[in-house]
Design a protein around this nucleic acid. Structure first.
Lengths: 119, 119
DNA sequence: TTATCATATGAGTAATTGTTCATATGACGA
DNA sequence: TCGTCATATGAACAATTACTCATATGATAA
């Protein structure tokens, strides 16, 4: 739809003032993109399983591989996504790399997600 | 990785007991899939923008089309995704269909998401 | 050093997804 | 009834993504 069409649409609608108000109250695009990105990273079965495991304990890649019953490469790839999103952090310990949740906000988010789904 | 390899991996790792504990404490697969699905639906820029708009007011498709500056078909498609996920609900009013957030849990989730991103 | 183990990563691929275009549905006013 | 408006939906397409395979890195042990 072109901008002109959207404009027209606004005029014909029932609540042009509400629309204007909402438009002004909308958060910035950057912020909304970041939030969408955060949820997108949380929105994957494998990654949710990883986070549930890390919610209980700091674990190495090998532990996670075993817990999830997946191949090590797949787990590492997903850990990278989680690390890039600053949802988990890692530290080296000898040959192993130990992962843990980065932030308590994340646990809250996941908990709330489970609460919602469980009704 | 085969199951046998995963098994082997567990033995070589530093914390086989922790791994066992975590494995037992993991939520059911169904539940984890549902949570991942919920976050996945929230994890899209357009849908987050729709939810932010509806957070302020009940709105018809036309209002949303105008606020987002997108074509009507795209908005309708995303509303369907949100409706299927029971994140928004709709009611008819004459020619229009009015959408609103379905549940306060959802507002909480989104608010938490923004709080996290804003640091 | 060399062999082995834990982890990371690039390429390739199949599946999913968001948007557009065209069209359908269904309600209202003339 | 007819035309118009608001919304919904199917098909097509481009972009993204999760996984696998093969290989690289980097640390430890012999």
């Amino acid at each position: 739809m072109t901008e002109k069409e959207a404009e027209l649409c606004q005029h014909t609608c029932d609540h042009p003032d509400v629309v204007d108000e909402v438009r002004k109250a909308m958060p910035g695009e950057r912020l909304q993109k970041d939030v969408a990105q955060l949820f997108k990273v949380l929105g994957d079965h494998t990654r949710i399983r990883i986070l549930n495991a890390l919610y209980r304990s700091e674990l190495c890649v090998c532990d996670l591989t075993s817990i999830l019953g997946m191949n090590q490469s797949a787990v590492s790839h997903q850990l990278r996504v989680l690390r890039d999103a600053k949802i988990v952090r890692s530290r080296k310990q000898g040959k192993n790399v130990l992962y843990s949740l980065d932030d308590s906000h994340i646990s809250d988010l996941i908990r709330l997600g489970f609460e919602h789904v469980e009704h």
